[in-house]
Design a protein around this nucleic acid. Structure first.
Lengths: 166, 166
DNA sequence: TCCTAAAGTTCTATTTTAGAACTGTCAATA
DNA sequence: TATTGACAGTTCTAAAATAGAACTTTAGGA
């Protein structure tokens, strides 16, 4: 499967993966949320090759996640800023960081702590249900086909059926 | 940078990306949460090459995200089940799906709807602060070095400094 | 004139991935 | 008994992506 094919899949995960589902895009976005904006800053802070960095920035701009704006005119210089669409990726980034905090830290502990400016406390992100506000776990969620559903694979249909029986 | 190097980075995002930061791992995990368990089910439902599927399953088992258990003896057959560590990836998967639902759906609408068994309503996931319960946005979060921090790049140090001034 | 900075582009060598075919074990069928 | 089919992979070659380094362009300053 080609990357382009992913964008067409009738699956919100696949389509998002087409945008951010590679190593460097996610690391670039991490830097964006840490207020990194310029080509050379990304390059020195990530150690990514300049070739790939140029390619990924272009892709993120094409998908509307970053906006490329000039910050000086002579010579022309640009910086990359998160759009609202990009800012909306924050829960993804935070949930990835949180899983790493729980399952991947070494004896030294967490590399970063997060403070919520609202309540001035160090916090962890928690995912809750928009309707009842309770924390979510995989086992408490049931999946239904939505208006954009297409016929799913036999294997998945069987799995859904098995789940419904329980 | 090699994939192995990512695991060593003093960054919870980089370390998590070392586990799930490629296209196929995320798609495999999506199927896992939809109760897909067996090699051929993954293969036919994803269209991934068998070679890569074998490789990614091995990797996910190595990292403790999946457990490979026999479900019959003659001939030996195995299935791949999410461990608790794997189940803990649910917020990542859900926040990816949610972003896709908001920013990547076409005119047909969402492919899947999610029902919360607790409150029996269709819901969206919301990320909130563990301390005050308010929804989180990037701009309301301030970052501090934690016990596992290492000296960061000059570019990032400057960016953090700039942010502190505001 | 030469040096530096920023933001890329170009080049070759190495790794990964795609796509298809092949292997081995066992059960059920003809 | 021979054949077919399911399952869980492995092996092969060709194509694509990535790493690492050098090069380019535009302009300001020593």
């Amino acid at each position: 499967m080609k990357w382009d094919a992913l964008e067409e899949e009738p699956c919100s995960l696949a389509r998002t993966v087409a945008v951010i589902g590679d190593r460097w895009s996610l690391l670039i976005l991490r830097e964006c949320f840490l207020r990194i904006r310029r080509f050379d800053e990304f390059q020195s802070s990530l150690g990514v090759t300049r070739h790939l960095l140029a390619d990924r920035l272009k892709k993120l701009v094409r998908f509307g996640v970053l906006r490329k704006t000039p910050y000086q005119d002579a010579p022309k210089r640009y910086e990359y800023i998160l759009t609202q669409k990009g800012l909306d990726l924050y829960p993804i980034i935070m949930s990835i960081v949180h899983w790493g905090n729980i399952h991947m830290v070494d004896a030294r502990g967490r590399p970063l702590l997060h403070e919520h400016k609202n309540c001035h406390k160090m916090f962890d992100p928690v995912m809750v249900c928009s309707e009842c506000g309770e924390p979510l776990t995989a086992k408490e969620v049931h999946v239904h086909p939505g208006p954009g559903a297409r016929k799913s694979s036999p294997a998945r249909a069987k799995a859904v059926e098995n789940e419904a029986k329980r």
